[in-house]
Write a protein that binds this DNA or RNA. Structure first.
Lengths: 261, 261
DNA sequence: CGTACGTTTGAGGGATATCAAATGTGGTGG
DNA sequence: CCACCACATTTGATATCCCTCAAACGTACG
């Protein structure tokens, strides 16, 4: 289960690890290399279009807002944040991207990047020229389906985030954030309860729609409550079930619902 | 420009209105029927898979959360809301869908609907069986590209909404909501400044992450300020430029930004 | 015509932003 | 290696936006 995305495995027939290994010989795009039903040949075609990962460093840009859209990017190791300029200077952090995750899908429509992507720590990133990928998907139906699923999944994730920002209070938001990181790292075979944050408190707050101070206070509180151990960027989640309970909330963390017709 | 989506026309070579008319003879999916480069034959193939619009009434469900995913839906006339159950009873309104807009893209990934779609007023809705559409896109490259763009566009829209919920205050949110409706209606050839709201104040509040009372008070205030005329569900926007100014905000409507590395 | 519900308006309180300042940390240059 | 600076984080005090509670009113529908 290590380097493999849950969602991609589910609903798919079992395939040999060999197939995966070959497809990922570039460690290129675990998200894309799993479309089942690909022949060895197809897998190699997919692999061929992927540019090998080059190491990037903190602060480097994958692309900037306004750039022409050319490629998707897959995080191999490290992490990346995407953010959009809010009118007038300030920014909205749109997401943090961990190993195995795809960046740039939102730019297909306009053919221009509407957000910027910046590397948070030394990272290895693969580039997938979209034009090539698109050609390939036209001739490999299962790959096409995979692409639809990836795009659709991105929409689902945004939807979840909308729910978070629209309905959750500060406590629930931070708990959800921590659990999300935990689960995503776990999928990649890393520890779900012991990890380093590559982003600042400021960036976390921005992402969650909270002030830095609120984030800081919550970290302190969570620690006091025995939910986690915080040491600078080093995080240890001591009570995952409790965090999950927090996220669900008593459902009255904030605001109310609407009624039928 | 009437029944045609801006975004779909842009970046596309000019085509004859005839082509569009044919493709839309079902009034099926104006969002999908515009992929340029389709032969007359292709257009007919696309058209054939679309089930004709049937009239639905307020409260009818297009699908419910948990339903197996089979089709996308295109609003022909009327309006639809989508909403997801928040854990424990309450709901989060995810979106309001006006004529020409597509519903259901988020369900492709899991093959199960994660949200419900409910008709807000008597509406005509077209159904597009996704399996058929997918087959078709495999053999018509430009249609495939169109699908990618539609999915991508959905992501961009969610992203914008994230920014709204994360960074805007109540006033800015409502102004943005009104402008969004205005612009989308305008695209469909309807008045951008005079329309009826098919959703309740409650639903608007839920969607925007605000309490009903706040929405109501803001309507009152906007009216006092001469920005709009409100009579029950009937809305007249009297000062679109001023609303736009409101949306952009002085950029300090709420919260702050993060800093570089 | 009555009941239910959607909307509006008012009063008050609470969650979280904002302001301010102390402390901790990492990097730089002397 | 230390002094220094910039900045990240934490902590405290205060302000404010918006939610919550409450009630009146309007409207729709049986």
């Amino acid at each position: 289960m290590n380097a493999i995305e849950d969602g991609l495995l589910s609903q798919q027939k079992v395939i040999s690890l060999e197939t995966i290994r070959v497809a990922c010989k570039n460690c290129s795009l675990s998200s894309l290399c799993l479309p089942m039903g690909l022949s060895q040949e197809d897998v190699e075609r997919l692999d061929d279009i992927v540019k090998r990962a080059r190491p990037l460093h903190r602060g480097d840009y994958l692309f900037r807002e306004g750039d022409r859209f050319r490629s998707l990017y897959v995080v191999k190791t490290g992490s990346v944040k995407t953010f959009a300029p809010s009118p007038e200077g300030s920014e909205q952090v749109l997401g943090f991207h961990l190993p195995g995750e795809l960046i740039g899908l939102d730019a297909i429509d306009k053919d221009i990047h509407a957000c910027s992507a910046r590397v948070l720590e030394t990272s290895a990133i693969c580039e997938v020229p979209f034009a090539h990928l698109e050609e390939l998907t036209a001739s490999i139906p299962s790959l096409q389906h995979q692409m639809y699923r990836l795009l659709s999944k991105e929409i689902s994730q945004d939807t979840e985030m909308l729910l978070l920002l629209g309905k959750k209070n500060a406590e629930e938001r931070l708990a959800a954030f921590l659990l999300s990181l935990s689960q995503r790292l776990h999928k990649r075979g890393l520890s779900p309860s012991d990890f380093y944050l590559s982003m600042s408190r400021h960036e976390i707050g921005n992402y969650l729609g909270l002030a830095v101070e609120t984030v800081s206070r919550l970290f302190t509180r969570f620690q006091e409550d025995g939910l986690m151990q915080v040491d600078r960027k080093h995080i240890q989640l001591l009570n995952l079930p409790a965090l999950e309970t927090l996220v669900v909330g008593s459902d009255q963390g904030r605001r109310q619902q609407q009624q039928p017709g």
